[in-house]
Computed example of a mutant assay.
Amino acid sequence: MNDKFYNLPIDKQNAIINAGYRVFSENSYKQSPMSEIAKEACISKSLLFYYFKNKKELYLFLYNYVFILVNKIAEEEINPSETDFYELMLQSSKYQRKLLKQHMYAYRFIMKTFYEDEEVARELIGKNISVTDNSINLLLGRIDRSKFKEGTDITQLVSIIGWCAEGFWKEKFCNPNVDMDEIDSGFKKIIDFFRKSTYKEEYLP
């Protein structure tokens, strides 16, 4: 990427970024034309290629940039002193909803990267796995394990909840008219189910 991109006024940078998220989130990578991104950002196609030498470079830039947005919202929504496993899960869901509300196309973009089948997806497989593993390790390192029933495999529990959450979010993600209240109540039901199944009775609400 040409460093001159960062010399653009912030509103111009955001116009390109937002146009990229919108186009890539609504189409496959292969069917996302740079000309459409340029048109929506109100710049010429040649100028877009001046800042990003090709579509792949822009795509990977947007992939990395979305985690700047994610980390900013996570810092606002996740209590650094919280140690309750399920409360952390709910806080994590809250920051995902906030990302969806504030940056809808960025959220849809990052969700689609898990299902892309084009060449660029191969470069993201390792990154997606690394991000997921880091998140899980951070979670496991801070939770209060004494609340769980004896014999609970917490690592496996994280994976199972992740699979359930992925299916739930994917279903809601396919709906263009996302209902935030429905997402909130639906995910809470998932968490309540696992909480009752794995926590000792004295730690249940």
Rank of each mutant, 00 (worst) to 15 (best):
P9E: 09
R22D: 08
K189A: 12
Q96G: 02
D153M: 15
Y51M: 04
I110S: 05
K170C: 08
I73Y: 02
F85I: 02
K30W: 11
D84M: 02
Y51F: 12
S135F: 07
F109I: 03
S146Q: 14
S35M: 09
Y50N: 07
M104Y: 12
Q91T: 10
E202A: 15
D179Q: 03
E202V: 08
Q13G: 06
K55I: 06
E171A: 11
Q91P: 14
F49K: 06
N54Y: 00
N64L: 12
Y199W: 12
Y203N: 14
E57S: 10
D181A: 12
A121S: 15
V70R: 07
G141N: 13
F114L: 08
K172L: 07
N27F: 06
R108M: 10
K94M: 03
I154Q: 05
E118C: 11
V120K: 03
I136T: 13
D144V: 10
D184V: 01
I129V: 14
E36Y: 00
D3T: 10
V66S: 09
I78G: 05
G186R: 04
Y21Q: 01
K189R: 15
T152Q: 14
S25H: 03
I10G: 08
T83N: 07
L8K: 09
K200F: 05
K170T: 13
V23D: 00
H103I: 00
Y59M: 05
F148K: 08
I73M: 03
Q31P: 03
I17A: 00
K147F: 09
Q102I: 10
L88T: 03
F193C: 12
S135C: 07
D181I: 02
K200Y: 05
K98V: 10
G151W: 06
E77T: 11
F193M: 13
P33K: 14
D184K: 15
S25N: 08
L157K: 14
C164M: 08
S197H: 09
D144I: 05
F168N: 07
T152P: 09
S159N: 13
K4C: 04
R195T: 05
V66Y: 03
N128D: 05
L60Q: 07
L157S: 09
T198K: 08
I161G: 04
S46I: 13
I125C: 10
V178E: 07
L139H: 06
L58F: 01
D11H: 11
K45Q: 11
N18I: 04
